[in-house]
Amino acid sequence: MLQWLPENVSTYGQSVDNLFYAIYYLTLIVFILVMGTLIFFLIKYRHQEGKKADYIEGSTTLEIVWTAATTVIVFVLAMFSYPQWNNIKSPTQFPENPDVVVQVSGKQFNWDMTYPGPDNEFGTDDDLELENELHVPMDAVVHIRLTSVDVIHSFFVPQLRLKQDALPNRFINVWFEATKAGRYEIPCAELCGFGHSGMLGYLNVHTQADYDAWVQERWPQ
């Protein structure tokens, strides 16, 4: 089933996929065991003439066993998940000194990208605004300042394994480092009105040389 996952092109995507696979195999095994036992019981203990059911009211030992076992499994799973989650979403743990900072703003029904320009400050004359086109270099840390001007949108790049809601009047920071050049879609993942379906931007990941050329073209020195 997991071969349907889109190709991963971010540095942390693999850790998400690993957890995905771990849970997949865990649940698959539980599913097969439970369903197998259930079907076995259904066949073995079907009603047969002259055979009465056994009067069994329960078993405290078994109750304790499966309560404890399930508790341990979920805690172990949670333990492995905290660091990955914090790594992707906790601003305090983001890689410092990003190579690129871009503000992405959702607006019915577009993604507005704002580059701070060479002075690295938003709200100055050298800012560059692009509609639905995000350009970043590969193998570089990108910080996104996510916001919205109207309703809630959700910034989703399937190949990066990144999704974050964009809220009006709030700035939420996310980061990624893309590992492969290419053009990827940025759909909106949160219902935002009649144009929600088809609200689509593009993430253009360039090699460093291409990116430098793009910067040169935009901000000629």
């Binding site: 439970v34 036992t37 259930l38 019981f41 259904l42 203990y45 079907r46 009603h47 047969q48 055979k51 009465k52 059911a53 056994d54 069994i56 329960g58 078993s59 078994l62 109750e63 499966w66």
Partner: peptide
């Protein structure tokens, strides 16, 4: 598990 325990050695 309790539902399955109920079916265990039952007469379904």
């Amino acid at each position: 598990f309790n539902w399955m325990g109920t079916m265990f050695r039952g007469s379904i």
